[in-house]
């Protein structure tokens, strides 16, 4: 049984097809790049998997079941938004995660927060957007999940932060778990990917192992992507 499977998945908004017949299998224990330009449909696909949208047709199976309580238990999702209650402080947020997620490791989160020199009593509203994003990454990576879905984790960050984010992902994802990273900044991330999925215009254009693709095309994934989607 696949960790995640999409079968003939379609999503329309007001009769406009955003996702067209997506068929996709994500196995266990891989880091997968969901690569596509802005507006290609990456976020829509991720939101469907996370039950924030409902499919127009087709099916999503997570460990063989439709999105629901069980899938939410095993998927740890980092959206592009800052989603925390701004009135809470970090400590309260940690308690919140601990209360709702049985697989949340608060010791790990506290340790990671310490590395960031963040005072645990800081209110979310007092933190910069960048800091909030780092906090969310820590929260998401501190869950011992089976599937991590990270939507544009590198969007608009400086190189130092980029390294921090990649290190945090690599050093914290649960052994045997899979990580799906959606991004349009391919060069920054391609060396950690096992598999790549090219998404364009609501369709999956290519799925391949990253190294096989490099060997076949004798170029970087970034380069291959550019060739595929010349604007």
């Amino acid at each position: 049984m696949e960790l995640l499977e999409c079968k003939n998945l379609c999503k329309e908004f007001d009769h406009k097809e955003i996702l067209k017949n997506i068929n996709l299998k994500i196995p266990k224990g891989k880091i997968i790049g969901l690569l596509g330009k802005n507006g290609a449909g990456k976020t829509t696909l991720i939101k469907l998997i996370n039950d924030l949208l409902t499919p127009t047709s087709g099916e999503i199976l997570i460990n063989g079941k439709n999105p629901g309580i069980l899938s939410k238990e095993i998927i740890s999702y980092l959206p592009e938004r800052t989603y925390l209650d701004k009135d809470m402080n970090i400590k309260q947020v940690l308690v919140y995660f601990e209360e709702f997620y049985s697989n949340f490791n608060s010791n790990k989160a506290e340790k990671l927060l310490k590395d960031l020199n963040l005072d645990i009593n800081t209110k979310i509203s007092k933190m910069s957007k960048g800091m909030q994003e780092k906090l969310q990454l820590i929260l998401v990576m501190s869950r011992e999940a089976q599937l991590y879905i990270l939507d544009e984790p590198l969007g608009g960050v400086d190189p130092a932060t980029r390294d921090y984010i990649l290190d945090t992902i690599l050093s914290n994802f649960n052994e045997g778990a899979s990580v799906v990273i959606s991004t349009h900044l391919i060069a920054d991330i391609e060396r950690i990917l096992d598999e790549v999925i090219f998404v364009d215009n609501g369709e999956i254009r290519l799925m391949s192992s990253a190294d096989e693709l490099r060997t076949k095309e004798k170029a970087s994934i970034d380069e291959i992507f550019r060739r595929y989607f010349k604007c």
Binding site: N50, D51, L52, Y83, L84, F100, S102
Partner: peptide
């Protein structure tokens, strides 16, 4: 906040 609310188990 819905991104958190609806991803709680």
């Amino acid at each position: 906040e819905a991104y958190l609310t609806h991803t709680l188990p």
